[in-house]
């Protein structure tokens, strides 16, 4: 199958997705639309973490930090001035915070860029560390971001956070950004640069001997991952319309990590599928945490049960199917057509 056919098929798939979204918008209720939105955002986050961890082998637990940066940057840029005046009741914001304004698309990119810049800044010192040290140090970075958000009220409104963020992030924006993320990361992974990332993950010493400046490419992968984590955070802020420092606890990183591991470290397809599956399951399991009424009899909801189920699920995956849903395999058009016709499998790759 040649390159042109594949591009056509990809465009066709995107068209089918848009048709589905259009249909969903017409016929789904707000709750289901919300789930679709969360799927798109979770997929963006999972893809970006997978680039960092699954493909380049850097164990980063800093995703919540990048998301927070993206979310706050974007919110400051899209909150109307009047809303900002209402929000900052304890202290007045810095004048540039008060004045900052941008259209939504640019605000999301801004969120991504500031997160990427933060990624670059922390990456330069931290990426020299080995895997679990890197994990704990990036986790520390995310915690520091959260503490900063709590302690610079003139920028972030402190513990109160932001409310009434304009809800621009509809399914078109979210899925548009999902497609952009998927395209960018897939382009990188499928090029020789992707092979270089894989080489760094599999054997750093050998990669060095191949003339690869490991540090530079680690930093590149980390920064790109941070950019899309920031984008995901920005979209999430606009989708939920409220943010505060408590939202960006380690739990948030844990959720993304769970999606990536479930889907398969080193598989974009896996990350996307797991985003769909886990987001739906998470929402569906909400019922165990909210009260159930049987006639006039009320069964109390059990708070925490959802995460018990999910952490158990993660444990089962890591203990019994370590490679996750897809392992390192990817969906390929050749493979799909190979299923339908014997002829197709002959030129598969």
């Amino acid at each position: 199958m040649d390159r042109k056919t594949k591009i056509l098929l990809n465009v066709a798939a995107a068209a089918v997705l848009s048709l589905f979204l259009w249909w969903a918008q017409e016929s789904f209720g707000g709750y289901r639309i919300q789930i679709l939105n969360l799927i798109a955002i979770n997929a963006i986050l999972a893809l970006s973490l997978n680039l960092i961890y699954g493909f380049t082998g850097m164990f980063s637990l800093g995703h919540a930090g990048f998301m927070a940066i993206g979310a706050y940057t974007c919110s400051i840029l899209i909150l109307p001035e009047t809303q900002k005046e209402m929000l900052f009741i304890l202290v007045s914001p810095y004048s540039w915070v008060q004045a900052a304004q941008a259209p939504f698309f640019l605000a999301v990119i801004g969120g991504g860029l500031v997160a990427a810049f933060a990624g670059l800044l922390v990456g330069i010192p931290l990426l020299r560390l080995g895997d679990d040290y890197l994990g704990i140090a990036t986790l520390g970075f995310a915690e520091i971001i959260r503490v900063l958000a709590n302690n610079i009220p003139r920028l972030t409104n402190g513990a109160l956070g932001f409310k009434g963020i304009p809800d621009y992030a509809n399914i078109w924006w979210n899925f548009g950004w999902f497609i952009i993320t998927l395209y960018c990361i897939a382009r990188i992974i499928n090029s020789n640069l992707g092979n270089v990332f894989m080489a760094i993950r599999d054997d750093e010493a050998a990669a060095k001997a191949m003339g690869i400046n490991i540090f530079r490419y680690k930093l590149l992968s980390f920064t790109i991952g941070a950019f899309f984590a920031g984008v995901g955070g920005a979209l999430l802020a606009s989708l939920l319309t409220t943010i505060d420092p408590k939202m960006f606890l380690f739990t948030l990183t844990f959720n993304v990590l769970m999606i990536v591991v479930t889907g398969g470290l080193g598989s974009l397809t896996g990350s996307v599928l797991a985003s769909i599956g886990i987001t739906i399951l998470m929402e569906w399991l909400r019922f165990v945490e909210s009260p159930i009424f049987i006639g006039s009899f009320e069964l109390k909801g059990i708070p925490g049960m959802r995460m018990v189920v999910f952490s158990l699920a993660l444990l089962f995956i890591i203990l019994f199917r370590r490679e996750g849903l897809m392992g390192m395999r990817e969906f390929r058009w050749d493979w799909l057509f190979g299923k339908f016709s014997k002829r197709g499998s002959a030129n598969g790759s």
């Binding site: 020789n192 092979n195 270089v196 894989m198 993950r201 599999d202 054997d203 191949m210 003339g211 690869i212």
Partner: peptide, 17 residues
């Protein structure tokens, strides 16, 4: 010390980089 998860071709391509 090969890049064990990569294909044979990918290993050589890394060298070209």
């Amino acid at each position: 010390r090969l890049f064990g998860n990569g294909t044979v071709l990918q290993n050589v391509m890394v060298g070209c980089h």
